[in-house]
Design a protein around this nucleic acid. Structure first.
Lengths: 169, 169
DNA sequence: AGTGAAATCACAGTGGT
DNA sequence: ACCACTGTGATTTCACT
């Protein structure tokens, strides 16, 4: 089901470039990796079909949308049984403040990444949507001072070796 | 600098659709929100200029790239001073295993989201890149059982009300 | 699988309401 | 602010290697 896919260096280079800018034209892509534009199209279509590429997402600035404060909520759901955690997960996913949700090992079962307007909004969210719910045993709130995105995601051991003539911007 | 931008319902609808699929054509976008394609172009260009839209990113499936295990590392950096944390952040960002990095309030200063091949790979990463570094005082590792992405990011209070005729796929 | 040419279609101005 | 029109150029298909 989720087997790895065999990727040659051309595929890797395509993925690297598209992770920087997913709207790179096939023409530019082609000249960067050294194949024809139509071949690039084939490659990308295959990467989409094989499930390596899940989709294209917009990167938005939460603070420009009036969400100036982000936080991580560690949540204990007790008792930790399927009939409780299923609805919990769905409810949290539907909150407009939620950005991501993780089910983790360790004493805190869930981690929720939220983006809110301000501290008062965060307080309201925690009180109304988490601590007031009976299956939520504990919530720990940590504010995010700063966050960084990291380098492109590539297969383990993939030596990232741009070709001599390729523009790496 | 990071002031919110005034967004009308058409802008919000455009953002909602583009968050589902950032490659929606202006033609489809236009028919979905009920204005002309050229107007959509204007709207999106303004959203880019005003900084609401930061860019376009590819969503990849880590497991298809051979990274079948993800984890969150809580890291204490001591002493927590600028001359130590700057290089620490840059080093972590450059690791091919890093997906995201957060600087947080609370006893654990940093949270690192990593994607690795397997448990042995995770052990290697923690031992070689974190616990062996002298400014790293403590590392706590939690595995990610499952993760979910959440609804589209919208301004606080934006009632998400899709129009009757709009295709929401 | 990869290529190159040709048809189709989207994009980005311009000008007008 | 919105829309219609249009040239430019990117995307996609197809016959061929």
């Amino acid at each position: 089901m989720s087997d790895s896919v065999a990727l040659d260096p051309v595929d890797l280079e395509i993925l690297r470039i598209l992770q920087n800018d997913a709207r790179t034209t096939y023409r530019d892509l082609a000249s960067a990796v050294g194949v024809a534009p139509s071949t690039c199209l084939d490659r990308v279509a295959r990467l989409r079909r094989s499930g390596v590429i899940l989709g294209h997402a917009l990167r938005l600035d939460p603070s420009r949308l009036g969400r100036r404060l982000e936080a991580l909520l560690s949540v204990q759901v007790r008792p930790h049984r399927r009939e409780l955690i299923g609805p919990f997960v769905e409810r949290v996913r539907k909150l407009p403040e939620s950005r991501a949700l993780f089910h983790l090992t360790g004493p805190d079962d869930y981690l929720v990444h939220v983006a809110v307007a301000d501290a008062a909004d965060l307080q309201r969210l925690v009180l109304d949507e988490f601590t007031s719910v009976k299956e939520v045993a504990r919530v720990e709130t940590r504010l995010i001072f700063q966050q960084w995105s990291c380098g492109p995601l590539l297969p383990p051991g993939a030596t990232h070796r741009p070709r001599p003539g390729a523009a790496s911007a």
